[in-house]
């Protein structure tokens, strides 16, 4: 799920950036710094949409660096248990497949793939129904449900299932081609 929230961060700025465009520098640094990062609490920070406020800078002893507390608005993405997501399959193997929904990697175990879908190894490993009508392979888009999330310091990893109503392939690159 996406959220638009306000976060705060202490930014350290090298004295060489002090000048007219200090604020700009600060913002660009902030963007570089936080966009794409992930925290367990808030999830992935997708984009900074605005700066709320920049506090007073504090010169750190001995280094000349200045610390600014910056409040910024950002869009975060945090996957939740039970959430339905659409994701792109990135890798298929006999244990299941990996899919990505934006920054989140989701693993769907073969036990969580409908029983009628079988793993087909080969050049393009895929899961196919017995009648061949539905195929999950790399680049397929699937709709899945998250059944569990694991939050590491720098990553959120999810396990998903497509063994449920209305879940499964939503567009098949093989079919379009």
């Amino acid at each position: 799920m996406f959220f638009h929230i306000v976060l705060e961060r202490n930014m350290q700025l090298h004295p060489r950036h002090f000048g007219r465009d200090l604020r700009e520098k600060l913002v660009s640094k902030l963007m570089k710094d936080v966009e794409g990062t992930c925290s367990g609490r808030h999830g992935f920070i997708v984009a900074i949409t605005g700066i709320e406020s920049v506090g007073k800078g504090l010169i750190r002893d001995g280094t000349g660096f200045v610390t600014f507390p910056v409040k910024y608005q950002c869009v975060v993405f945090r996957p939740f248990k039970g959430e339905i997501l659409e994701a792109v399959v990135t890798m298929v193997n006999k244990m299941g497949f990996f899919a990505e929904a934006g920054p989140v990697q989701i693993f769907v175990s073969n036990h969580l793939i409908p029983d009628d879908m079988e793993f087909q190894s080969g050049d393009v490993p895929n899961y196919t129904t017995s009648d061949g009508s539905v195929k999950i392979q790399k680049e397929s888009e699937v709709r899945l449900k998250i059944i569990g999330t694991r939050v590491d310091a720098t990553e959120i990893f999810c396990i998903g299932t497509i063994k449920d109503d209305f879940l499964g392939v939503i567009s098949d690159p093989g079919a379009n081609a």
């Binding site: 244990m95 299941g96 693993f107 175990s109 073969n110 036990h111 969580l112 059944i147 569990g148 694991r150 990893f157 396990i159």
Partner: peptide, 21 residues
């Protein structure tokens, strides 16, 4: 690992590292 499903007293876990069940 993460619990994938529970069948009675048996817990199916997907291992974090190997992704095996």
């Amino acid at each position: 690992g993460m619990v994938e499903s529970v069948e009675g007293h048996v817990v199916n876990i997907i291992s974090d590292i190997t992704k095996e069940r």
